[in-house]
Simulated scan of single mutants.
Amino acid sequence: MRLLKVAFAIAVLFVNLLIAQPSWADKPKFSKNPDYIEVTKTIKELKKSAEGTIPANVQRQIDELEFQKAAIESGIAWGQCRNETGGNLAIYGNAGEESEESENSNQLYFLANGQTTPDQWDCQGVYLPSDVKVAGLDKTGAVAIRIMDGTQLLVKKNPDTSELELNIPNAKVVKPSDQDWFIPNVSQAFVDSRIPNTLTSGDNG
């Protein structure tokens, strides 16, 4: 009888181990995340360049980067984009299996006005045509804005100036020659003519 109870207890323990997530399960490998590596490196460089007393504007950059670093450490390995521009917004997402023949690590998608990319769908940045003006951004041609994991990017149009406004400070600009992002030279009118093909937070599936 005693052996039966022991066997039953062992069986219950085994089932619990199979069903419940172990408390010692590995945490997300954020230390290998490219964004995490970049943020950590930039923080170190800013602190090193300050040499002693850190100016207020540099300290603000460090604080913002520390905040981004904490967001990545929390396990959020994706970015989110919202479009309030009044037209289509071209955004970058992981090409994955959808574009095995593509030479670029990510692909352009089109997000309709008033829409937000869903949770877990990694919006990596936005494309800004050459004929679009962006507040606080001096650009002479088409560029892309890259966002880090854990970032909610809002792009909206200022009704008074018609300029686009980004809710992130110190936007990281990606130029055609910088890395393997597809940055074509097309107009906003062309972007607006595309059929939106991004699942949004209000879509099913």
Rank of each mutant, 00 (worst) to 15 (best):
E64D: 09
S49V: 04
L46R: 03
A7S: 11
G96R: 04
K157A: 09
I195H: 10
S130M: 08
P176N: 07
E103H: 11
E163R: 07
F30S: 05
E163F: 08
N83S: 07
N204S: 14
E51N: 06
M148R: 11
V143T: 00
S130L: 05
L154Y: 03
N185F: 13
L166D: 07
Y109A: 10
E51D: 09
S31V: 15
G87D: 12
D119N: 12
F190D: 10
D131L: 11
L4I: 15
L164Y: 13
L4H: 15
S23D: 02
P184A: 09
V134W: 08
L17Y: 12
P159Y: 11
M148Q: 11
V126K: 00
D160V: 11
L154N: 01
T140W: 08
R2I: 15
T161Y: 11
F67E: 14
A95R: 06
M148A: 14
D180H: 05
T40N: 13
P129W: 05
I91A: 13
E165H: 00
D149P: 00
A70I: 03
S201Y: 10
R2P: 08
W78R: 00
E98M: 09
V191K: 02
I76T: 13
Q59E: 06
C81F: 04
D119Q: 10
P22W: 00
D203V: 10
Q21A: 02
E45K: 11
N16V: 09
V191C: 07
K41G: 14
G150L: 06
T42N: 11
E66M: 07
K44S: 15
P118E: 11
T161C: 13
L18N: 01
G52F: 07
Q124V: 01
V191A: 05
G150S: 09
N104P: 04
I72L: 12
L166E: 04
D35Y: 03
L166R: 07
K47E: 15
S177T: 12
D192A: 05
F8T: 13
T40A: 15
G75W: 06
V143F: 02
F14I: 13
A25S: 02
Y36G: 04
F67C: 11
V186N: 07
V6G: 15
V155I: 08
S99G: 13
Q68M: 12
D192C: 05
M148K: 12
N167L: 01
L13K: 06
N88L: 08
E103T: 12
L137I: 15
N88S: 10
A189Q: 14
L18V: 01
G87N: 13
S177G: 12
K175N: 06
P184W: 04
P176D: 10
G150W: 05
N197L: 03
S23R: 03
W24T: 03
V126Y: 04
K172I: 05
